[in-house]
Amino acid sequence: MITSMPGLGIILGAEFLAATGGDMAVFGTADRLAGFGGVAPVPRDSGKISGNLRRPQRYNRRLQRVFPTSALFSIRHCAESRRFYERKRAEGKRHTQAVLALARRRVNVLWALLRDGRCYEFSPPNALAA
């Protein structure tokens, strides 16, 4: 199931499973998985100051390698990912920021696929069919 997602092949899929233990119930939400993988910002607020979002200092190094690497591969091989990346670049984001934004989006997609037990489809599922 994981191998059908563009940019997430056999090796990166195996690294993902090894890093997470294969049990998604441990994380609870896609946000927690993204935080564990180091691709989601965490608040570093203090006192009256709020809104300071920084990259987390504690995250799983293996997942931090898997998510951006799969995003880079998907930019090359998937037209949808390439359009998302180019849109972020057009918004003024640097290359690294655009790749991390794509990696974060792919975490949400991967989470939904694993939660629903579905394979990746290039078009979104039809809401009326359900």
Results as ranks from 00 to 15, higher is better:
K88W: 00
G35N: 10
T20A: 05
L72A: 11
E86I: 05
P41C: 15
S81N: 05
Y85E: 03
N60Y: 09
P6Y: 06
L102Y: 03
F73N: 12
S70H: 05
T3G: 10
V42D: 01
I10C: 11
A18E: 11
F67H: 03
P68H: 07
R82D: 10
R94A: 15
G22I: 12
A103M: 02
L114A: 15
D45F: 10
E86D: 14
A79T: 07
R32F: 02
A98M: 04
R89I: 11
R89S: 07
R82Q: 13
S81V: 00
A18V: 12
A90K: 04
R87G: 10
A112T: 12
N60A: 09
A103R: 00
L72Q: 14
G92L: 10
R83Q: 15
S81R: 01
A14H: 07
D23A: 09
R61C: 06
G13H: 05
T29V: 06
F36Q: 00
F27C: 09
R76S: 13
L63S: 03
D116Y: 07
L72V: 13
V42N: 02
G37D: 02
Q57I: 05
L17I: 15
G7L: 01
A101T: 03
G13T: 07
F27E: 08
P41G: 15
L114G: 10
A71T: 07
L72H: 13
R32G: 06
A25C: 09
P56M: 06
L100K: 00
K93V: 05
R58K: 13
P68Y: 05
G38E: 04
Q97W: 04
N60R: 11
G35L: 14
A79W: 03
K93Y: 08
P6W: 07
W111L: 10
S81M: 02
G9T: 08
A71V: 08
L63F: 05
V99Q: 04
V107W: 00
L8M: 14
E86Y: 06
R83T: 14
D23S: 09
F16D: 05
F73T: 09
L100G: 01
V107S: 03
Q64Y: 00
G7V: 01
R44F: 14
R83K: 13
S4I: 11
S4H: 12
S70F: 03
A14E: 10
M5F: 15
Q57T: 11
T96N: 13
R106I: 05
L63A: 04
R62G: 13
M5K: 12
D23I: 08
A34W: 01
A101Q: 02
A30I: 05
G35T: 14
L12W: 05
A103N: 02
G13Q: 03
R58G: 04
A71C: 11
R61V: 07
F36D: 00
